[in-house]
Nucleic acid binder design. Structure first.
Lengths: 188, 188, 188, 188
DNA sequence: AATGAATGAGCCTTCATTCAT
DNA sequence: CATGAATGAAGGCTCATTCAT
């Protein structure tokens, strides 16, 4: 069922490759077109400008990330387990989606799009409710320390993401040791 | 009757401003020249190329960062105190040098210069010995958990840096609470 | 509704004009574009770089030169007549293509492309067989003196070319006298 | 007796090297200064502009060439011997002064300085009288064919020059065979 | 005389975007 | 829908020339 937006997807995929390999500014539309097997014109048929094209990729990546984070039956776990589950989800996701992770980092380095990342990961999508339940400080009725949400984020998901990008082979034991450390850091 | 490299410094300073405001690729040499009050040509008198110019700024920033991190009498402190001192140094530095911090992040996001940052902060300069003394895991004779150095970094200096960039007004109590959390995370 | 490489040809033609009038280095791409009635960008659509553009012109000129040299029924002539025919062909061609001749000279003066011209004129194209038949020394079974091919060239085609460039009105008698002298010089 | 114009000479010598190695346009004043061990400013002390600098080199080269051509006791020789002497002088000179020869060729390829070379070699300097005596056609009371002086030149000195530039090891016999051919070509 | 920092016009090249087909 | 030729502003860099010291 090759839908109409087949090409749209192909373009987006190739854009991700190109951007992570060469960076935004070394990824001309012409190259993207060639690599995608389409004409330059058709890209402008699907996306109004290069900027919007990149934004479209951002949205797409954010979406699959949101889903990945909340996978697993986290609503029926203890807070500690749910926290660790989400942490490992993040780590897993970024490990298997390094390109996406790198893209996100580059995107956030853009002078324009400096949007807070901590806030975002809690509020952007449908999994909001699930995650918010876990990432609640004591004063919000949760079991986390009363720290700013940014701090909580950097001591948890942030760590997972950055390590996933950098690390290539982290055994289970080490991984678990790190989650544990994170949990120690943020929990009461 | 300024010093010899007066202009060199001026150029570097303006570059830092421009890059953090607009990004590498939106900072043409011509603009840098205008803002610095010099001609384009003279920039090439001091730096062989735009790339080298940026590298020069990187080196400069890394240097002052290294000094900032190890300030204070950390060699005569307990490990815990030394750790917290360094953490607060980092936080302090990045808070007062957001531009430098943003530049560093952008620099590391360049497709070329993907150098590990955890390793770097321990090995780049004369303060090496001091810092290395503190950031040692149990198996290295230290008091930190046996985690990869990347993990240690992300749970300590990394957190300090990222929060410093984001946060604008963090009271002492909160700051101390966060250092404490970091220490909890990485220490035995 | 011109042919596909309409512009390519126009660019090449204008390049020839400009180069002979002003030299390689005084022929900016911008000027070439303006004179050709096209944008700078489109030149780079047809040619990868200024250098390749110039090489393309060289190839083109060499081609028409090769054809011009071997025109006439030189295979059914005596050696002497064939030689004179080729000489006059060369003279004729360069007289009517001074620009091409000047370009060729400039091209060969480039520090990079110092390719021997004597060897070249015998070996570059389909007329090879015809010409080679004539320009053969005694020891190669021909009727020319046993001199290095470079010397043969300079005493024949070379002379034709240089005189054609310089001279404007040479009557038939003089022209014939000169060919005769050349033939005297190189034939047994 | 290191005279005042010591540097002038040094500059001119280095210019010759640089130009023959890299061409006019790849020889920046700054490079010439560095290679000559002087400052850029001092070059402008001795020469008003780059163009005049190059012209100065041209004059210098032309001068030593003129002297070289007329060396030997050519006024007491037969026309044939004198002709051959001059031819061999030219060949010898250019063989040992390839740089000068290459420079001359480059110089003449400049769009501005298209001065006839045949006329020049007869009229530029003090050796004029000697040479003119030899290079006279029948109608001028000489023993050469009644051909245009350009043709005479190209069939004699011209050949010597071009072969000298190209050829690296030409044995005496071959050399003599070529002079003989030239003489055959131009003499009655 | 001598230096070399400083200037700035100009060069080659790239690339987002448009539009006739 | 689709193509890719065409545009032209803009970018990095060079270099002849000047001038304060």
């Amino acid at each position: 069922m090759a839908v109409l937006s087949d090409k749209r997807e192909i373009i987006l995929e190739n854009l991700l490759d190109l951007i992570t390999e060469r960076g935004f500014h070394d990824t001309p539309m012409s190259l993207l077109a060639r690599k995608s097997g389409v004409s330059v014109g058709i890209i402008y048929h699907y996306f109004p400008s290069k900027e919007m094209l990149i934004d479209a990729l951002y949205v797409k990546v954010k979406l699959i990330l949101g889903e990945a984070l909340a996978s697993g039956d986290i609503q029926n776990m203890t807070e500690a387990d749910a926290f660790k589950r989400v942490w490992l989800n993040a780590f897993e996701f970024y490990s298997n989606h390094k390109k996406e992770a790198l893209f996100l980092e580059q995107y956030k380095a853009l002078p324009d799009c400096r949007e807070g990342e901590a806030a975002e990961f809690l509020q952007k999508d449908k999994n909001f409710a699930l995650l918010v339940n876990i990432f609640r400080t004591a004063s919000q009725g949760g079991v986390l320390k009363d720290l700013p949400m940014d701090a909580i984020y950097e001591l948890s998901i942030g760590v997972a993401m950055r390590l996933a990008i950098k690390q290539t082979g982290l055994d289970e034991a080490t991984k678990n040791a790190i989650v544990e450390s994170c949990w120690t850091a943020v929990s009461l």
